[in-house]
Structure formats: C-alpha cells, structure tokens
Design a protein around this nucleic acid. Structure first.
Length: 211
DNA sequence: AAACAGACCAACCGCCATGCG
DNA sequence: ACGCATGGCGGTTGGTCTGTT
C-alpha cells in the first residue's frame, strides 16, 4: 500500500458512521466492484455493498466506477483537439460538465471539470510578467505527461486484451450457469446471489453512462 | 538538499431530479 | 398527491507529485 493510501485510511479512520468506508479505494475494492458490475451491470448502486461485500455506499461505488473503473475510459492527457471541444462547449453550455463529457467519449465530467479548473480558470490570473514562466513550466510538464501517456496507452492495450479474454470467460461461465441452473448451484466466492440484475433504461440518464 | 508553490486528480458533499409505491 | 429511495450533477477539498527557488 502506498503512503498516500495509508494516510488516507488513517485520515478517514477506515470505517465511519454506519460502517461505510471512506477515502482512497484499494485494489481489492476495485476488483470487487469491477466484478460486481460485470455480473450485474451498472445501476442499483446501493445493492453493491450487500452483493459485492463492499463497505462503501452506493454513491461512492458509482463514482468510482464512472470516474475510474469503466473499461471504456480514455486515460491520459487531454489532447489539443479535445481541449478545443471543451472550450467550445463550455462557451455554449457553461459548467454543464456532464453535457460536455457526452461529446468527449472516454472522458468523465469529473476529468473535464478538473481540467477546466486547472487550465482555464487560473489562466485569467496569470499576469504578463510571469506568463513566460508559466508557459515553459506547462511545456515541460506536458512533455512529462506525454511520456506517461505513452506508457499508459501501452498498458491500456494490454488491459483491453485481458478484459476481452475475461469477457469470453464470463460468457462461457454464464452459459454454463444457464445450462446447469437446475442441475448444480454455482457459488462464486462473493455474494452474488439474489439474482436481481436490474439495469433499467431510466437509470442511464446521466452523463457518466452515456457514450 | 530542502523548502515552497502550483498543478493535478481522486473522492467527498450537498442539492436536485426522477421513479416508484 | 405525497414521501421515500436512488442516482446524477456540480462544487469543493485535500493529498500527491513535480518543478522552481
């Protein structure tokens, strides 16, 4: 565990009122949530705690999935093209981040919001005398981020290949379950048992789910 | 080498909209 | 029509990382 995660757990005290955990997510929690969504689909977030054995409230689970775990997320630096779209759409819609995010596949409202705040909100504060410094600073940082992005892209390709393999496996498992439903009970290691994969269309109205 | 400043981003909170009984 | 549960959205906070002084 990283120092950050440790600090987070110390700060948040692990368990809080009603037994819900707060603070940074662990790899194990991510795994449980991913597994839950793969089996039950998105939605019914308040059931996640019960069904996946997570000590997180529904809101926290949804946020984690939407902003971080979704397989279709495009990680890494915002491209100049995306930036121009953000600028244009912000001029049109203002701070309607989820609306803007709908026009940028793979980007979340949170990501765009953060990007806007750091790149544009503060630009107004940059005075002429220190704008050069800021520019070179930004340039160096962007070079660094570009390197990071290349690494992440490589990793993402590997992850997607892995995911495809997993999905194939899941299909096999699900068809196996279907075939054997009345023969032998399938008991995964976590509680996925009450069989209510309720993903209604009306639950997909938010930006996070729209592609 | 250490202190500091700023950028970045994950995660939380509160409010609001919607669906359902 | 009403109240409750749930989910979505925007704003904010706080920790980490990196570059600068």
């Amino acid at each position: 565990m990283s120092w950050g995660a440790m600090a987070g757990q110390l700060r948040w005290g692990g368990l809080v009122e009603e037994g819900w955990r707060k603070g940074p997510w662990t790899a194990e929690e991510d795994r449980l949530l991913t597994e839950y969504v793969r089996l039950h689909g998105e939605g019914r977030w308040n059931s996640v705690a019960r069904l996946a054995g997570l000590k997180r409230n529904g809101k926290s689970c949804r946020l984690r999935w939407v902003n971080y775990l979704r397989p279709d997320l495009k990680r890494g630096q915002i491209t100049p093209h995306e930036e121009s779209i953000i600028v244009e759409l912000h001029a049109r819609w203002g701070n309607r981040w989820s609306t803007i995010a709908r026009s940028l596949p793979g980007r979340t409202d949170n990501e765009i919001k953060n990007y806007w705040r750091t790149h544009f909100k503060k630009k107004a504060k940059i005075s002429p005398e220190n704008s050069d410094k800021a520019r070179t600073h930004l340039l160096k940082r962007q070079q660094f981020l570009q390197q990071q992005q290349q690494l992440q892209q490589q990793q993402q390709i590997q992850n997607q290949q892995l995911l495809q393999l997993n999905q194939l496996d899941m299909k096999k498992i699900m068809s196996f379950i279907d075939e054997n439903e009345n023969k032998a009970p399938f008991t995964p290691s976590y509680e996925a048992g009450n069989g209510a994969p309720c993903r209604t269309p009306q639950h997909n109205r938010g930006a996070g789910l729209a592609i």
